[in-house]
Write a protein that binds this DNA or RNA. Sequence first.
DNA 1: AGACTGCAATGATGTAAATCAACCCACGCA
DNA 2: TGCGTGGGTTGATTTACATCATTGCAGTCT
Lengths: 256, 256
Amino acid sequence: MAPSSLPEGQPALRPRRLVIAGMEGCTGCAVCEVRARGICSALNDQELEQLARAAVRVTMPPGRVFVEEGAKADAFFNITAGTAKLFKSLPDGRRQITGFVGVGHFLGLAVSDRYAFGAEAIDQVKVCRFSRERLEMVVEEFPRLERRLLSEAANELVAAQEQMLLLGRKTARERVASFLYEQLLDGYGNDIPSGAKLHFPMTRADIADFLGLTVETVSRTLSGLRRDGLLAMGAGHEISVMAPARLQAIAKGEEG
Amino acid sequence: MAPSSLPEGQPALRPRRLVIAGMEGCTGCAVCEVRARGICSALNDQELEQLARAAVRVTMPPGRVFVEEGAKADAFFNITAGTAKLFKSLPDGRRQITGFVGVGHFLGLAVSDRYAFGAEAIDQVKVCRFSRERLEMVVEEFPRLERRLLSEAANELVAAQEQMLLLGRKTARERVASFLYEQLLDGYGNDIPSGAKLHFPMTRADIADFLGLTVETVSRTLSGLRRDGLLAMGAGHEISVMAPARLQAIAKGEEG
DNA sequence: AGACTGCAATGATGTAAATCAACCCACGCA
DNA sequence: TGCGTGGGTTGATTTACATCATTGCAGTCT
């Protein structure tokens, strides 16, 4: 299916640059940069070739909404580059970002025939796009894929429960600390050095909508953490975490 | 495995009555009351017999914590009677209930080897208990089960995203309305009559911990909805919904 | 019957975070 | 060179909800 049939929704936020979408540069799944990650890691080279025939490679500019809340759910996506945000909205514009998803993430599981959430590219995002039918065919052929999808779903479920705890019961300070610490784990694994640097592709507004706060509160809370010597702000939206252990303690709610 | 090996955690809230746990009254999966629901519906009678051999039937009194947050995740549960609450806690006692689960619900999917959440019986709960290894064996034998589990997980994920929107962005009134409306859908399906009655097994404190509010706010908000003619309180914690459509509008955030 | 206990409702007061409002800075563009 | 625009920060004020405190009421144990 051609990229032009993607759900467009609102136009890209910054449609100045010409959009180049398609399969440029993709020489097949076997040499794909996410070969070892996500669902693809469940298959061997030969099986991947099958998968490749079912997929279309698409490139999205920042701001492009490529899954529309409530739209017909006829495609699945596997992210191969960039970061996207998933969200749900209320009629008056209130928005909750349910997750930021990066390379290797599989996206599109739906209960009904409609997407229950929207997805928007934050930076330039590349995806492998599967039609529902074609994915079903491949899954039918390789049951191992199903196990892989189940394990992905279980992972997301655990993350979602953690986020419910954050949204329902944590203070602003705890929320921001949790977010930062999660980012540290993503970037550094379990061994986080003092002074670890973080760089965010998303805006303060996105962070606020993820944490159930306002931009102002996020900004103030970050300033507070800086004043307390936990963080240091660098150039170009870079944040250094001076005291990862204290940050974690705050995130877990162990500090007043 | 004998019921005595269940994680006990804190003792049951009301340990006055003698606990009778075991397989009493269970004559096999084929005639089980949840035969047609949850994961069991994916199997035929013959396959169910296999499943039966892997399961232990256990009965839990109200208040019993049968999954302990952070404990070794060596068992799965399928609820065959009653209602349980799933929750996550902070060290200082703050608690977020991530869901109420009833008959047919499958429970225990974990990422690591530890449960990321706790589970507690609200009323008398009966479950089919599977050890991790035995469930894996059965799944290995009947891949259809895996598909079923995936679909369960996808369902829960959608519910979790909806709950994140509620916790992050809805007002107290909208949260309570959402909860009540969800309960209506469970009980009546899509066609809800004016005056539809609801009965809750959980306390106000549970509802508060589910909605990210305090008991007082839940109580006040219910009173408010009653004053506005949307609800009528009956005897024995029964609530009648006089205006389901307006309730839904509030739940969706369409009303100031 | 009287006392105790768990749960719910309601009132008075406090507060964390939202809202409203400036202001700054970096960037692209005329 | 100046202007517009999209972030981001900070301050003053408001507010929705939490907290603290009291009361009522239905079970159930003695």
